[in-house]
Computed example of a mutant assay.
Amino acid sequence: MPEGALEIDRISKRYGDVVALDEMSLTVRSGEMLGFVGSNGAGKTTTMRIALGVLAADSGEVRYDDAPVDRTIRSRIGYMPEERGLYPKMKVLDQLQYLGELHGMERAEANRAANRWTERLELSERRDDQLQKLSLGNQQRVQLAAALIHDPAVLILDEPFSGLDPVAVEVMSTVLGEMRDRGVPVVFSSHQLELVQRLCDRVGIVRRGRMIADGTVEELRSSGPVRLNVHAPKAPDDWAEGLPGVKVESHQNGHTTLRLDEQADDQQVLRAALDTGPVHEFSRTRPSLTELFREAVTEEPDE
């Protein structure tokens, strides 16, 4: 069973004047699933490729189980790229068996693993089909099987859920959860933030090549702004204007959404709402991961 953590320690990468990564750091622990999120071009794929040794970092280090990642350790990583990299005219089972052998498996062992994963990923009836004859969703399942064929110690996936239907998403989610439960560090990038929020133990938000937020979903949500939803049907549009530490985000038909800073007193807000008449709802909410992400990536960088 895998016991180590994957550590990316202050890696930087430049292409001329363009800074792709600026001391990027993240850790994916044994038995943990980390969602890696950021806008296009933020540095997610570059980080993954450096971890795999496809690209070389200008500085920093990638470690697994406290040891620098070398060729031997990289052979134990399962990788699913965003750009599908399989042979379109090769049959599914033959392809998976071949990839297993490339990872050093005996032919019979690779064949058993290929059959096991095609069955687990509900591809049994397509084993003898050419990859190009499969739907895009089934091609992604084959790509996942290719990442899992050699029983990896670490799993890195770049946009694995892109374009999948809900059934395929559930199958893939379950398999990734099983790998995590076996102690495998799992990291995947995704723009489907509701899925990241549901599946991941931790989330890392990256902007312009730097990790700007890292923690559990609840930790990140707790650090975000507090909002109040108030339903005061007789309240005028400006009833909350001027309350200390309170920003009115919306007001329509007696429903008001307020954003509170640390100095705001929610009891003062409640009294102000009651002064207008009956209050049918007064509830505190924390931002969703989607809201946190939107605020983080659109925030102006520090000078």
Score class of each variant (00 low, 15 high):
153 A>C: 13
268 Q>W: 00
52 L>E: 12
134 L>D: 05
172 M>Q: 11
154 V>G: 07
247 K>H: 12
232 A>T: 11
172 M>L: 15
291 E>C: 10
224 G>W: 05
16 G>K: 12
101 E>G: 14
97 Q>I: 10
215 G>K: 03
213 A>G: 00
58 D>H: 13
112 R>S: 10
77 I>F: 15
198 R>A: 08
277 G>F: 10
235 A>T: 01
217 V>H: 10
266 D>I: 15
58 D>P: 07
152 P>G: 01
48 M>F: 15
67 A>R: 07
18 V>F: 15
118 T>L: 11
113 A>Q: 10
33 M>P: 01
263 Q>H: 14
168 A>C: 11
106 E>M: 04
231 H>Y: 05
263 Q>L: 07
65 D>M: 02
2 P>R: 06
226 V>P: 01
269 V>E: 09
130 Q>L: 02
125 E>I: 04
240 A>P: 11
70 D>H: 00
186 V>A: 08
302 D>W: 14
73 I>K: 03
194 E>D: 14
294 R>Q: 05
185 P>Y: 01
189 S>D: 12
14 R>G: 09
228 L>R: 14
230 V>R: 00
8 I>C: 04
241 E>C: 02
273 A>K: 08
183 G>Q: 09
58 D>T: 11
120 R>I: 06
125 E>M: 01
98 Y>V: 15
13 K>L: 12
241 E>A: 09
249 E>A: 03
131 L>S: 11
15 Y>M: 11
69 V>P: 00
274 L>I: 14
116 R>N: 02
237 D>C: 00
284 R>T: 15
240 A>H: 11
260 L>N: 00
218 E>I: 12
253 N>E: 08
77 I>T: 00
195 L>Y: 06
162 S>T: 13
5 A>I: 03
295 E>M: 08
280 H>K: 14
243 L>W: 09
120 R>T: 13
111 N>H: 15
272 A>G: 04
275 D>T: 03
38 G>N: 13
209 G>I: 02
79 Y>C: 02
37 V>L: 07
114 A>L: 00
138 N>G: 04
295 E>G: 02
160 P>M: 07
183 G>D: 03
216 T>G: 13
115 N>H: 15
143 Q>M: 12
300 E>I: 13
287 P>T: 15
37 V>E: 09
244 P>I: 01
164 L>E: 00
199 L>Q: 05
222 S>I: 04
19 V>P: 03
206 V>C: 06
296 A>H: 03
121 L>T: 05
298 T>L: 08
279 V>C: 14
98 Y>W: 15
62 V>F: 12
174 T>Y: 13
169 V>S: 04
275 D>L: 04
49 R>E: 01
129 D>G: 06
160 P>L: 02
215 G>R: 03
114 A>I: 00
12 S>I: 07
280 H>C: 06
211 M>E: 09
264 A>S: 04
83 E>T: 11
125 E>R: 09
236 P>K: 11
283 S>V: 14
239 W>S: 08
1 M>V: 09
62 V>S: 08
